[in-house]
């Protein structure tokens, strides 16, 4: 017994040490981004890997908040993310529930057709034409409906639903519970970890919306934060600039501004995960049912 617990403690020690090292490696670059956004431009240009702004400056933030472009596009992003994710969860849950039922017919062909769409896509132009024919152009729907269900996440959710204990369905049926009630009263509440995961995935997907916004929406007031972010990050990237052109020299923003925009545009979505984390523990409930 003692030996095993010694072993166990050594195991813990190594495990924690490795994880801490890795997390340090992942978080330092982000600290660098934040520190650079609060530093003077001079310090940023002269320091390779700034971790603390010894020359503190809020100039970058004053600059990015000097126009209403940033707050407005953040607002758009938050709206699209919240509304879009809600639509995703609804649509994905319905379909995943059906396809996870053991009695459903034609499941294999339907699943194959779902996977098929992950492999073959029509491309920009046909997607655009469908959105246009549906009259969605220039509305937020264009950012949400065409991605209402992601096949990948659908399959994951089906897999989670399938792992719910079989007895659940039968006992619910005996209680005279219909499919609708089974889904909303039993299956979904028992699948909180899976739903939390999907919420995170979909929210991140919407937060990163970029190309769709530019293609489907002409009204710049409806563009999400990523359009601004990528424009600012890419302006200085010669590789992406139109070949042979020397346009845009007057527009290259200072590094501090780039870092400030990255910070502001990343923070809200980073906060989603810690908030969702508590739902990952609710599997305990599931376990007790299963046992």
């Amino acid at each position: 017994m003692i030996r095993s617990s010694l072993w166990s403690r050594a195991f813990d020690g190594v495990n924690v040490a490795l994880l801490l090292m890795f997390s340090l490696g992942t978080v330092l670059p982000f600290i660098h981004v934040i520190a650079s956004s609060f530093a003077s431009e001079r310090l940023v240009a002269e320091t390779d890997f700034l971790l603390f702004p010894t020359e503190f400056s809020l100039k970058a933030y004053q600059y990015i908040f000097s126009s209403d472009a940033l707050p407005r596009s953040m607002g758009v992003s938050v709206f699209v993310t919240v509304a879009g994710t809600a639509l995703n969860l609804f649509m994905t849950s319905l379909m995943a529930y059906s396809l996870s039922r053991r009695t459903i017919r034609f499941r294999a062909p339907i699943m194959f057709l779902v996977v098929f769409t992950m492999i073959f896509q029509g491309g920009l132009i046909p997607d655009y034409l469908v959105v246009k024919e549906l009259g969605l152009l220039d509305s937020y729907w264009a950012l949400m409906l065409p991605r209402a269900i992601l096949p990948f996440y659908l399959i994951i959710l089906i897999n989670f639903f399938k792992q719910l204990p079989d007895g659940l369905e039968e006992s619910a049926r005996i209680d005279g519970c219909g499919d609708l009630r089974l889904l909303f009263r039993i299956v979904l509440p028992l699948s909180l970890p899976a739903l939390a995961t999907l919420t995170l995935f979909y929210a991140v997907m919407h937060w990163n919306t970029y190309m769709h916004a530019i293609l489907y929406i002409n009204d710049m007031d409806k563009w999400p934060i990523q359009v601004l972010l990528r424009q600012i990050v890419l302006i200085s990237q010669a590789g992406f600039v139109e070949q042979g052109s020397v346009e845009g020299e007057a527009s290259i923003p200072p590094d501090t501004v780039r870092m400030a925009v990255i910070t502001v545009a990343t923070f809200p979505i980073l906060l989603v995960y810690p908030f969702l984390q508590k739902y990952f523990a609710s599997g305990i409930l599931l376990g007790s049912v299963k046992g």
Binding site: M95, S98, G122, G123, P126, V130, I149
Partner: peptide
């Protein structure tokens, strides 16, 4: 419950797939 999903896949995946 499957119908909205099917409609979605036809509309936004299989129609454009003609491309």
């Amino acid at each position: 419950l499957l119908l909205p999903g099917i409609a979605y896949f036809i509309l936004f995946k299989y129609i454009p797939m003609g491309g």
